[in-house]
Amino acid sequence: MTIRRHHDMGGLDAGTVEPVEHDYAIWEKRVDAIVKLMSTEDRPYLSTDELRRGIEELGPGVYDELNYYERWISSATNLMLEKGVFSVKELGRKMADVESRWQAAGAKPQ
């Protein structure tokens, strides 16, 4: 049996490379910063390969649906839950809190 995993795409057919780019949004830079700060010598919570593994395990649908830093925060958050950095309950409560604050400030979901 030859398993080819979804992220392992070298050599597959794909469309033209569109030369798109964007200035990284503040939230993307902050995800980047969280991951880097949590993978230092004195905070060895996330290794590059754990993060990669977590991204690969998001599965084909989610992998393509999310953008780059959405995949990063998904993987990093799962790993921090696994390692007990915070609990599911804490995360859920905090996310509800953040969303209600943002809504109160006039932001809307995309």
Partner: peptide, 13 residues
Amino acid sequence: AYPPGHVRTPYFI
């Protein structure tokens, strides 16, 4: 070899 987990050897090679 085609193991199911995280590896860094690309499939095509």
